[in-house]
Amino acid sequence: MQCHLFPTNSWFIIFLIIICVHAPSSAFSDDDERYLSCVKSFDCGNIKGVGYPFSGSDRPDYCGYPGFELGCSNQDPEITIMQLSYKLLGINNQSRTLNVSRTDYTENLCPTLLSNTSLNPNLLSSTSDHAEVTLYYGCPSPSPAGFSAQFTCNVNDSTGMMGYFITVNLSVLSMTAPSLISYLTACNNSVKVPAHLSAIMPILPNPTVAQLLEAIYQGFELECSANDSLCDTCKSSGGQCGYNQTTTAQLVVNVSV
């Protein structure tokens, strides 16, 4: 899977032509070493055969693009996005999409730290199958009549913190339940957690905590925001793509071994 936005300035194209060469098979060169390193794939759990733009395990940093480093913990592949850890659930090479879920919401709605999900728009963007669950923490008691989507947990050293969750936008609630809007804005914190829209829609009428956790566990989809025609061409000819950490330029290494 290739997910890198290539610069279009002329010097960069020249650089690509220079390094996308066939090294002599009789002499071992730096290109040979990089090729042999980057031809290895990342394998962890059910995720197999992962290549560029990802690095990790037997794939050195220069075999992937910054921001796409993978880890493997207890056969669970993980990726860090904007300082938050996500479990990598799947990769679709054809659509250039990833399916990920937040590791801090795997078992309950009470993470150690409260952090919103954020993305680098230059690397990743949400797909059409996207919804956001808003979790509210430190809400006043009692709650409005008829509002039962609640949970209790200890977050940020607070004991018995009351929390609520909603699966619709506040703009919708402002028209249907203005008193609930006033209540939720009085809560101490809120966190937005993405999920598949297709997983949220069935539980919209009356979601339970268990149903919400299951929807979050199914993850959400991200699309690599890039055009990789040059890298695709090199790979189709038997080459390997990487990233020069020193010059911050794309490496496209095509060698004979």
Results as ranks from 00 to 15, higher is better:
Ala23Pro: 01
Ala23Ser: 09
Ala23Asp: 11
Pro24Thr: 02
Pro24Glu: 05
Pro24Met: 02
Pro24His: 02
Ser25Thr: 06
Ser25Asn: 07
Ser25Trp: 03
Ser26Met: 02
Ser26Arg: 03
Ser26His: 05
Ser26Glu: 09
Ala27Asp: 05
Ala27Cys: 01
Phe28Ile: 06
Phe28Lys: 11
Phe28Gly: 02
Phe28Gln: 06
Asp30His: 06
Asp30Arg: 09
Asp31Trp: 03
Asp31Asn: 11
Glu33His: 10
Arg34Ser: 05
Tyr35Arg: 11
Leu36His: 08
Ser37Met: 13
Cys38Val: 14
Cys38Phe: 12
Cys38His: 01
Cys38Gln: 04
Cys38Ile: 12
Val39Ser: 01
Val39Tyr: 15
Val39Leu: 09
Lys40Val: 01
Lys40Ile: 00
Ser41Gln: 08
Ser41Thr: 09
Ser41Tyr: 09
Ser41Ile: 14
Phe42Met: 01
Phe42Trp: 03
Asp43Tyr: 13
Cys44Lys: 06
Cys44Asn: 03
Cys44His: 04
Gly45Glu: 12
Asn46Pro: 12
Asn46Val: 15
Asn46Met: 14
Ile47Leu: 08
Ile47Met: 01
Lys48Val: 15
Gly49Leu: 09
Val50Trp: 15
Val50Tyr: 10
Gly51Ala: 08
Gly51Gln: 11
Gly51Trp: 14
Tyr52Trp: 06
Tyr52Gln: 08
Tyr52Thr: 11
Phe54Ala: 07
Phe54Cys: 08
Ser55Val: 08
Ser55Tyr: 08
Gly56Arg: 00
Ser57Tyr: 01
Ser57Phe: 11
Asp58Trp: 06
Pro60Arg: 04
Pro60Thr: 08
Asp61Asn: 10
Asp61Lys: 04
Asp61Ala: 12
Asp61Gly: 10
Tyr62Thr: 15
Tyr62Trp: 12
Cys63Pro: 10
Cys63Met: 09
Cys63Ser: 03
Gly64Pro: 07
Gly64Met: 06
Tyr65Lys: 01
Tyr65Ile: 02
Tyr65Phe: 09
Pro66Gly: 00
Pro66Tyr: 00
Phe68Met: 00
Phe68Lys: 00
Glu69Phe: 00
Glu69His: 03
Glu69Asn: 01
Glu69Trp: 03
Leu70Ala: 15
Leu70Ser: 12
Leu70Cys: 09
Gly71Trp: 12
Ser73Tyr: 04
Ser73Pro: 01
Asn74Gln: 03
Asn74Gly: 02
Gln75Ser: 13
Gln75Glu: 14
Asp76Gly: 09
Asp76Ile: 15
Asp76Pro: 13
Glu78Pro: 05
Glu78Tyr: 03
Glu78Thr: 12
Ile79Pro: 10
Thr80Ala: 08
Thr80Trp: 15
Thr80Arg: 06
Thr80Phe: 14
Ile81Gly: 02
Ile81Lys: 02
Ile81Arg: 02
Met82Tyr: 04
Met82His: 04
Met82Trp: 03
Gln83Ala: 15
Gln83Ser: 07
